[in-house]
């Protein structure tokens, strides 16, 4: 989210230890049908590497089933990775003491797409927030928790807080519930908020309100976001850096500006082309290359480059060789065998 992050780093000029660093992350699920014959392993996250700095927004984009939420659950320690490493301020999770782990769980919070299903329907908003405050250890005593809960409500725009304190989640609109979800995530004073499709279920006018709120929170508290979305236009507005996922793998990553204006991976360009533009003068769907084929299933991962069956630029070697994520520009990397040609100007047909 614009502003603070870039300016801060432009001033210091150095690369500090990332807040979170994920390397070689894998998650496999033994899944498939009920019958042994059809049982296959699902490689939901495949050799993922992500780095997020304090105060920065890193977005993960990709189509459904590509592994975005699984990545979120692994980073939240809700699921254990099959292999790989998650470091928090340089310390691997696996090496942490119990106290350090508790601190990690406090500093990394989550906001879901549908706060309705993640809020306890039988608890009043005040109780939801005071519980989050005391359980995390953010405040010591109950009186302080009540005062802090009121402050948080005002902060996220549930104002006047007194009129919301005793309400139940079902007595709120979708946008208001999302504000509660955000207030609850803020309660333990997190350093990273993982927001999994936080505005996808909201109407346009409410979506703009919530995105503005997230931007303001970042300005005021320099919290980092892992912002998960399937909507590129939202990502374009809120993220500093972006990672494009396809079948569990990161296929392109870099600063939002360069990835969106100079995409190197054909899949990134296909996603950009497919995103409707709210300007009839620049309407593109009639003209651009629209990728054929379905969103692939993780149980039937193609050989070689996982994108090759749908890729308009695929050549013979793409069927056998797995492309690695390699630098293609300033902090910009792509996993495509034809990346060099693309950088030199090879266009989609």
């Amino acid at each position: 989210m614009s502003g603070t992050y870039e300016t801060k780093h432009a001033e210091t000029g150095s690369a500090p230890t990332p807040l979170i660093e994920v390397t070689g992350l894998h998650k496999q699920f033994a899944s498939g049908g009920r019958f042994r014959r059809s049982r296959r392993s699902v490689h939901a996250v495949d050799d993922l590497a992500i780095r997020i700095h304090a105060g920065e927004t890193f977005a993960l984009v990709g189509e459904s089933g590509c592994g975005k939420s699984t990545t979120a659950r692994l980073m939240l320690s809700l699921q254990q990775p099959t292999s790989g490493d998650i470091r928090y301020k340089g310390t691997p999770l696996s090496m942490m003491s119990e106290a350090e782990r508790r601190d990690y769980r406090r500093r990394v919070q989550v906001v879901f797409q549908d706060s309705n299903s993640s809020l306890n329907p039988r608890k009043r908003l005040g109780t939801i927030l005071t519980t989050a405050l005391t359980v995390s250890g953010a405040v010591a005593d109950a009186r302080r928790a009540v005062a802090r809960a009121h402050e948080l409500m005002e902060d996220v725009g549930l104002s006047p807080s007194a009129s919301f304190f005793d309400r139940y989640p079902h007595e709120l609109s979708g946008g208001q519930r999302q504000r509660v979800g955000i207030a609850r995530a803020l309660a333990p004073e997190p350093e990273l908020i993982i927001a999994d499709e936080p505005v996808s279920a909201l109407d346009i006018s409410v979506r703009a309100q919530i995105l503005q709120l997230l931007q303001r929170i970042q300005r005021e508290r320099s919290v980092a976001y892992l912002f998960i979305s399937h909507d590129l236009s939202v990502v374009r507005w809120v993220a500093h850096r972006v990672g494009v996922m396809y079948l569990g793998r990161l296929v392109e990553t870099g600063p939002v500006e360069s990835v969106f204006t100079r995409p190197v991976h054909p899949y990134t360009e296909v996603l950009i082309n497919a995103t409707p533009v709210a300007d009839p003068e620049r309407a593109q769907l009639r003209h651009v290359h629209v990728v054929s084929g379905d969103v692939p299933s993780t149980t039937e991962r193609p050989s070689g480059c996982p994108f090759h069956p749908r890729c308009p630029l695929a050549v013979e070697t793409c069927r056998s060789e797995v492309p690695e994520l390699l630098p293609v520009g300033e902090a910009h990397a792509a996993a495509c065998l034809r990346a060099t040609e693309r950088v030199e100007g090879l266009r989609l047909p």
Partner: peptide, 24 residues
């Protein structure tokens, strides 16, 4: 006009324009 200012275009970046308060 409010709806359109809440639309986030692929070319835009930075701060989200005017967001109309309240809901339907």
């Amino acid at each position: 006009r409010a709806l359109m200012s809440g639309v986030l275009s692929l070319t835009g970046t930075g701060n989200i324009g005017f967001a109309v308060p309240g809901s339907v």
